[in-house]
């Protein structure tokens, strides 16, 4: 190795580049923790015609980039990527490997960790270096109701998949230049055991709910379809989006698109209103990233009320109506 600095690797996950900035976010985080362990931030890019990503990762904070660029890597392949990543890691012995918690990353990361016989923490929402120089990985469990801090004291590399949207990318800077190291495709790569027959791009189910800064969720406690409709008016006044629990979808008060929960969408608004929702784990699993929660439920002991920042014990429909009225008054006054 050219120098003895501890390499922090970030897997270059460039598919869906414009929606998925997680690789850039990880490069930023790697830069932030690097000084504590005399770290060198490296990106690993596998694929074909990936020059522009190599350039981009350099401009976003990678000091060194390992690239394997080959026509056989034209499409993402769990089998081949695992093989290549493991081989490279066995040779270069990075201290840390960070992988974006995309669907691909969450399937690929575990396989790499298994072959390297090391630990992997899933879907992290925090990464720090502790006094012993270990990577402290904060991971949610129980639908975000608990957070665990996890370390890998002995095995190396320390590995984590990291949830998109947690860290802030470093702005693009063309003056930053990374050292680019080309790794030729090894001659002995195995046959891909999974045959990709068809692959259609499904340009996102729209991400309105996922990206909304204000989300208004309604549950069975709203009482009826016509009462539930008021949530849309409230959402309009607050520039928000409406979400719903499963009973609401079953009763057809809202479209399936609005389902928030394990079987539906994950939201992370700055402000979440929750009206008439009990707080079953299948629902709360998807809302625990909300920064501030205001819950309205006539049952003060409902789980949703316990996890709220502000818990209003009252009739959901009446509070909704009063909110709309008050908002209209205030918006007119300004």
């Amino acid at each position: 190795m050219a120098d003895k600095r501890n390499e922090i690797w970030v897997f270059g996950d460039y598919r869906n580049y414009f929606q998925n900035r997680v690789t850039l976010q990880l490069l930023a985080r790697a830069n932030a923790i690097a000084p504590a362990i005399d770290g060198l931030v490296c990106a690993v890019v596998l694929g074909h015609d990936v020059g522009e990503y190599v350039w981009e990762y350099g401009a976003h904070g990678a000091d060194r980039i390992y690239v394997t660029d080959h026509p056989d890597l034209k499409t993402y392949s769990g089998d081949l990527y695992t093989h290549l990543m493991v081989k490279l890691a066995e040779e270069k012995r990075p201290e840390i490997i960070l992988i974006g918690a995309t669907d691909f990353g969450r399937e690929f990361g575990p396989r790499v960790a298994k072959r390297l016989e090391t630990g992997l923490t899933a879907d992290c929402v925090g990464l720090e270096i502790n006094r012993d120089g270990l990577l402290v990985q904060t991971a949610p469990g129980f639908g975000g109701n608990l957070l665990a801090e996890i370390v890998t004291p002995k095995a190396r590399p320390q590995m984590a998949t990291v949830r998109p949207g947690i860290f802030q990318e470093i702005p693009h800077d063309d003056d930053r230049k990374a050292e680019v190291i080309e790794i030729p495709l090894p001659p002995d790569i195995p046959r891909d055991r999974v045959r990709l027959l068809r692959c259609e791009y499904r340009p996102g189910r729209d991400q309105c709910l996922e990206d909304a800064r204000v989300v208004i969720c309604g549950g069975r406690g709203m009482g009826s379809k016509s009462k539930f409709k008021k949530l849309f008016e409230l959402a309009r006044l607050l520039n928000g989006e409406v979400g719903a629990t499963r009973p609401v979808i079953y009763s057809r008060w809202a479209d399936h698109e609005a389902l928030v929960g394990q079987a539906g969408r994950q939201v992370k608004p700055r402000l979440l209103f929750s009206f008439g929702i009990s707080g079953a784990i299948q629902h709360t699993a998807a809302v625990t990233d909300a920064e501030f929660i205001i819950a309205v439920n006539k049952n003060p002991h409902a789980t949703m009320m316990k996890m709220a920042d502000v818990a209003i014990a009252a009739d959901a429909n009446q509070v909704c109506t009063a909110l709309i009225k008050e908002l209209k008054r205030r918006l007119k006054s300004s």
Binding site: R15, N16, Q19, N20, T102, D103, F104, E107, R193, V194, R195, L196, L197, R198, C199, E200, Y201, R202, P203, G204
Partner: peptide, 12 residues
């Protein structure tokens, strides 16, 4: 469905 790609795969 994997990251916005609807894939048809085959394996032995």
């Amino acid at each position: 469905l994997c990251d916005n790609f609807l894939e048809t795969l085959e394996m032995d």
